[in-house]
């Protein structure tokens, strides 16, 4: 395991932020850290980065408990609220970040990879949200990290920018890296993650593969048209449902059967809780 979180507890005044949270991230995997706003995702990531202290419990990164410079050099991090020095240019920011690492990736290579070449002389204060996010991820990758810890890296981005980042996540994983990314976008989680950690009000609701999480919803959705009217039914046995439609001589058309979605699983887990 590259990240191990054990029995993490955190309170702010009387409010419980994290309640006995434990989970892990395996080497070479992408883990989506899912939960609604205020679930405790950002606090957990900040504790992992050494930017907050846990009241109880501990987290290990690459087997180390301390956030020493070796551990920090193995992690690429982007925070939820990105703000770069507004008067520094893009290439200057990347040059500056690269000075913290022994063998950084060439800045030109990153500018190319993240489609930042044309705007490399633009000041950070003039960048759009998408450009800032791309710069954030380029900064996170510059030190050739083994782990990426990304706090809502695609929030507020257009489809094209999201696609660029998702492709980067996949290629980082292919090269042997591990990613823990927080998101409340269930679609993003199901598209890029191998594993999902579901968090709500500081508590772990579930951890497992997308299929495992979805399996907690034991029904399928059947959509069909009867007399030009669209109908939707939920059933545990879709085959039997369709057979019954035929046996009962109901004239239907355009029938579609859908597996349960991550969203439905998530909502069911929250209801159960």
């Amino acid at each position: 395991m590259v990240i191990e979180v054990k029995n993490l507890k955190k309170n702010y005044a009387a409010k419980v932020i994290l309640n006995d949270l434990s989970f892990s991230v395996a080497a070479g995997s992408i883990v989506a850290f899912l939960g609604p706003n205020g679930a405790g995702k950002s606090t957990t990531l900040k504790i992992l980065m050494g930017l907050k202290k846990a009241d109880q419990g501990h987290c290990k990164i690459l087997g180390e408990l301390n956030h020493n410079n070796f551990v920090k050099s193995q992690i690429g991090y982007t925070s939820q609220e990105l703000s770069f020095p507004p008067h520094l240019k893009i290439f200057e920011i990347l040059n500056f970040v690269s000075t913290h690492f022994l063998q950084p990736l060439p800045v030109d290579q990153l500018l190319n990879r993240f489609d930042l070449v044309k705007i490399k002389n633009n000041k950070a204060g003039d960048l759009s949200g998408g450009e800032q996010r791309r710069l954030g991820l380029a900064s996170a990758l510059i030190g050739r990290p083994k782990i990426l810890i990304l706090d809502e890296p695609t929030t507020g981005l257009d489809v094209e920018s999201r696609q660029i980042l998702w492709d980067e996540f996949r290629s980082f994983k292919k090269s042997g890296g591990s990613i823990l990314l927080s998101t409340h976008d269930l679609n993003e989680a199901s598209l890029v993650a191998d594993q999902v950690v579901v968090l709500d009000e500081g508590q772990l609701l579930a951890q497992g593969s997308i299929a495992e999480i979805k399996s907690c919803v034991d029904y399928k959705k059947v959509c069909f048209e009867v007399q030009n009217e669209l109908k939707t039914e939920h059933t545990q046995d879709a085959d039997l449902f369709v057979k019954n439609l035929v046996l009962n001589k109901i004239e239907f058309k355009n029938i579609h059967i859908f597996d349960s979605t991550l969203e439905e699983a998530f909502l069911k887990m929250r209801k159960k809780k």
Binding site: N69, K72, G143
Partner: peptide, 13 residues
């Protein structure tokens, strides 16, 4: 009060 300051603290330094 900027996130850049926190980001700097996350770098090996």
């Amino acid at each position: 009060e900027t996130s850049w300051y926190f980001y700097l603290r996350s770098l090996p330094s």
